[in-house]
């Protein structure tokens, strides 16, 4: 620097030193991806065909417990919500691609899924239970299904929990969907339908009753892109508030009280975002 003659050069040299320093020590930009908290509006995946949980009506509007929970969370986050139907098989894919921001669709938290997406919540812990005809008195629990006819829905795992996990010798009767199981039950073709209690409650009519003998935990989570810790924590906070301010109780009663299902009104144990 001593050899410099012009002030211009000196100035340029100083500027270069400073620029060098800027380049050398520039702050590493936040590597984390986008968060749902940065958005104004959320696209939320729900079920289109699950009575009481997520159902698309004739006007194209979605209704159900999941939909109300999702709307509450979006409101607490200060976002507007748009609902789209997300088939069960595409929930991880939709979240990973970013075509939906949240999934609230009877989406059970499992370790395999957690390798691909993160979960806020669970917002409810459903239990596998059994639905029988109202006049049935011989079935008080899952063990009593021995030798009885149980509806087996193609593609669902619920019957395995009875026949394979509990090793109960039931007679399986195939059906294409739970709606078909319900009509079979009413028609006397099967003696029982066994799956998540909230799903059963959605189908409940005065002719049918839930046994209220739960034998598994299905933790319904709010699917969110992996790595969005801030978003996931905000969802958990919203769910905590949903239970604290009584909204959860109101919504559960609104959708499921008439089924006679024993409901839980206290906040579930969260999965954790980290």
């Amino acid at each position: 620097m001593v050899t410099l003659t012009g002030t211009g050069r000196l100035r340029r040299a100083s500027a270069l030193v400073l620029l060098g320093a800027v380049a050398l020590f520039s702050v590493p930009a936040c590597a984390a991806g986008s968060s749902i908290l940065d958005k104004d509006s959320l696209v939320i995946g729900v079920k289109p065909d699950q009575p009481g949980l997520g159902m698309k009506d004739a006007d194209g509007e979605f209704t159900g417990f999941d939909v109300d929970v999702a709307a509450y969370i979006a409101r607490k986050l200060g976002k507007s919500a748009r609902f789209v139907a997300t088939p069960s098989s595409e929930r991880e894919k939709a979240l990973m691609e970013g075509s939906v921001d949240l999934v609230v669709a009877t989406y059970s938290i499992t370790p395999e899924r957690k390798t691909k997406v993160a979960f806020g919540g669970p917002y409810y812990v459903a239990h596998q239970d059994t639905l029988v005809r109202a006049g049935e008195s011989g079935i008080a629990g899952v063990r009593a299904l021995k030798g009885r006819k149980l509806c087996q829905v193609t593609g669902s795992n619920s019957w395995r929990r009875v026949k394979e996990e509990r090793k109960i010798a039931v007679e399986l009767v195939e059906a294409a969907s739970y709606s078909e199981c319900i009509s079979d039950l009413n028609a006397g073709k099967v003696d029982a339908v066994s799956t998540d209690d909230l799903i059963l409650a959605g189908f409940a009519t005065p002719d049918l009753k839930i046994v209220n003998a739960p034998f598994s935990d299905e933790r319904y989570g709010v699917g969110i892109q992996a790595g969005d810790l801030d978003g996931c924590e905000a969802v958990n906070k919203a769910i905590t508030e949903m239970y604290l301010d009584g909204t959860a109780k109101n919504l559960l009663q609104k959708w499921f009280a008439k089924s006679g299902l024993a409901l839980t009104f206290t906040v579930p144990q969260f999965e954790g975002c980290g």
Partner: peptide, 17 residues
Amino acid sequence: RLDLLPKAYNLTLDSGT
């Protein structure tokens, strides 16, 4: 199991936050 433990667990998660 249904009320206190979940809340305690969530508190830990919260304070981790």
